[in-house]
Amino acid sequence: MDSFPELRNYYLSEMNSDLTLVVEGHRLPAHRFVLAAKSPVFNAMFYGDLMESTAREVDIREAPVDAFRVMLRYIYSERFEMDNDKDFQQAIQVFKLGHRYQLHRLVQYIEQYLITMLKKHNYIRLSDTITSASYDDFLRSRRFDNSLLSVIDNIATIYEFAVLYELTELVNACQRFIAKNSKLIVKKKSYLTESFDTMESILGLMQTNPAVIVQALQKIRDQHPGADMSQFERLVNFDTCSVDDIQSVRTIRLFSDDKLFDVLIAKYKTLQLEMNKVVKDRRA
């Protein structure tokens, strides 16, 4: 609820404006007392010993202008509103600005907004046989909520952001979402990032069969052909891998040929013991 609802009328208004904020070349009229009342950082800028305290025009650096407008709207109205409620990238940008200017209630709103978007969707039952190329048709045919697809497209970014800012509740919500939507995340390749630690963590959360994990590792190898992928070794459970899965692992060159040979020999011996047991039972 707005503390001073009349302040909304002053958002981006020239009326009684005593300050212009320049963000990415855009000139945004503002009011020192409003900004200072909501943000300790703005208060120090405009009523402290900093040069901004007497400046009529202040350049705001490293701030996307659309995200900055959303933050300003919140300052004047105490409402977190975006033009596109499925723009998770912008929501994260606004969070970072809120964190930068110590708008604690705003960052709490955004964390809860992201958690709500993760929790509101049921997972998609995706067939193992569907191809990456046809997944768009598959989804359209079932008329899934576009916000679910947007979450899937951005899950790596959201998860990485939640870990970076130590947002425990959001991290937990991401982990549950990843576990439930493993197959589609792999089909969409939305786990791919520049961070090996993030990709390893996401794949480690997936509750799916070995073939899907191997497929994901192959995509990582394709994206980073010369990189050391040894940290992903823990993700391959040879006890549940088929011979075909092991052959696929070999193409990734995640393990040495000697290691894979030993795995195949062990599987052959296990299979031979099982066959001998079946034969013995039939003769009994």
Results as ranks from 00 to 15, higher is better:
1 M>Q: 11
1 M>P: 14
1 M>I: 13
2 D>P: 13
2 D>G: 08
2 D>M: 12
5 P>D: 08
9 N>I: 02
15 M>D: 15
16 N>D: 10
18 D>H: 01
23 V>T: 05
24 E>C: 09
25 G>S: 03
28 L>G: 00
32 R>G: 02
51 M>D: 15
52 E>A: 00
62 E>A: 07
62 E>F: 07
69 R>Y: 10
71 M>L: 13
81 E>D: 10
81 E>Q: 15
88 F>N: 06
93 Q>T: 05
94 V>C: 01
95 F>R: 08
95 F>D: 06
102 Q>Y: 07
110 I>M: 04
111 E>M: 06
118 L>H: 05
128 D>T: 10
134 S>Q: 13
137 D>M: 11
138 F>N: 06
140 R>P: 03
144 F>H: 12
144 F>Y: 15
148 L>A: 04
149 L>E: 10
150 S>Q: 15
152 I>A: 02
152 I>E: 02
158 I>V: 12
159 Y>W: 01
167 L>C: 14
170 L>M: 06
171 V>N: 10
172 N>R: 12
176 R>P: 00
180 K>Y: 13
183 K>D: 07
185 I>A: 03
186 V>R: 02
186 V>D: 00
188 K>A: 11
188 K>L: 12
196 F>W: 05
197 D>L: 07
198 T>A: 05
202 I>M: 14
206 M>A: 00
211 A>V: 00
230 S>C: 08
235 L>W: 10
240 T>N: 06
241 C>H: 00
246 I>Y: 01
249 V>H: 01
252 I>Y: 07
253 R>Y: 09
258 D>Q: 12
266 A>W: 08
274 E>Q: 15
282 R>F: 14
